[in-house]
Design a protein around this nucleic acid. Structure first.
Lengths: 146, 146, 146, 146
DNA sequence: GTGGTCTAGACCACT
DNA sequence: GTGGTCTAGACCACA
């Protein structure tokens, strides 16, 4: 689990960590039950303070994506396959989606291109060997989003 | 031009203003060349400090969406029809898109549903019946979406 | 708003602050909409670090009792009169109640005495105008407390 | 003696064990003189480290609820019928009670409902209600509340 | 070993 | 002025 940070970014470090982990969960790289590095270990690896990692993990815990356990550290609590989101998530999320897509449209990206970007991002979340997933639950193939 | 703010939101007020304006530009409600209320006027209307409005306008100016004239006030600088975005915009934007979509996927929204939300948002930016601009104030119809 | 802390207590300081504020809300001393001292001000008053106050406020915010506003600082979000608790609150709370009452019973406090303590505590939350109790639902009079 | 633990709870495991035992004593399930499983046995049953069980037992010993003998293991030292609590217990306990009840009141549970919960919990400690304690001082009435 | 608490100070963002 | 972020180090609680 290596994640690259941009310490000069205006995005707070703890948010960058959180974002990378969310993306890793979405892409299946971190499945439900996976364990994450300890806060102090990750802090050392990234060359930052452990409190910053702590804050990222705590945020993910509040979002329901992580559970923290004194014994085993942080575990992935949730997954693309765990089920539908908690009520209330979608509304707030769509508000942010609306703002983000508006930004592209206002800058002159046409609708099909925007939708293409969305589809491309989603595709990038299922990069692995579609043939090896035969067993699986089967249903996940719907991802190519068409 | 009415925009509703949530003063208790964790989203800074100046960003809420900026977001609403971006969405208005994306939806065509504010076309290129339209004029916005003066900072002081808008501040009074919203019951906030005019510095806050100023900050929102300045951010939009930096983003290339507004140009500010001492005499004519703030004018919309570009819109969906002005042309493709400046180089560099797309990369940064797709990074944020990736994070946002990952959030939904990690919370269990499946890929088709995510793409459906994207499409629905885009549809909501097309203010139905472009020829109906004479109606003008009846612009509310565009947003029911979904 | 003065609250006394026991810095030697095994109860974390931030929890003591949180507890005192919860009790003040319950007793009507802090009504919905009341403003609390700024984190830094309270920290100075209490002779502790502002981060500790921050943590207490943030906890209360997560519990839905406070809302934090950049402009006006912390405001009481909720009240005995605001309405019934969020679903899920009661179950978790009754678990803790069960443990606490069990402690007294196990130590030999008989049931009526336990119940008497509970009633006494509740009474202490409505200290004002004991003669006006007939009105009952007109209880709002008791709490203006300022 | 079956106790169910939640290893992911924010409540420390040793405290969960302690709480369950306190409740068992309060409900009469564990009477004075009863013997508890050995720390090692219980640890195996629960799938946890025996030091954790040890810590729970030691805490109960400090609280005066258990006595620990090298030969006979852990025995229940007192129960509801052993007599009134040690001096000093009640004050500290009522402080915690006050905080806990305040929490419910602040979240909008009205006084009679709170008192009802207390009464319900106490009733649950009376396993079969042999003589039902007679009049029970009639303290349950919400009179003092409201 | 793990995470949690408290303190401390510097700097930034928001209004 | 307000709160938020990041860093830092010490100490404690838990398993």
């Amino acid at each position: 689990m290596i994640l690259s940070l941009d310490l000069d970014s205006e995005v707070p470090i703890y948010l960058q960590i959180r974002d990378r982990i969310v993306e890793a969960i979405a892409s299946g790289e971190l499945a439900e039950g996976s364990s994450l590095p300890s806060t102090r270990q990750l802090a050392v690896d990234l060359g930052i303070n452990f409190h910053t990692v702590n804050k990222a993990y705590d945020l993910l815990r509040q979002e329901g994506l992580l559970r923290i356990n004194r014994k085993s550290g942080a575990l992935v609590q949730r997954d693309a396959r765990t089920g539908p989101p908690e009520p209330g998530f979608t509304d707030e999320w769509e508000t942010r989606l609306r703002t983000l897509l508006a930004e592209a449209v206002a800058h002159g990206v046409d609708h099909p291109a925007v939708l293409g970007s969305c589809a491309a991002v989603l595709t990038s979340f299922t990069p692995t060997a579609p043939t090896a997933q035969g067993a699986d639950h089967g249903a996940e193939q719907g991802d190519s989003a068409s």
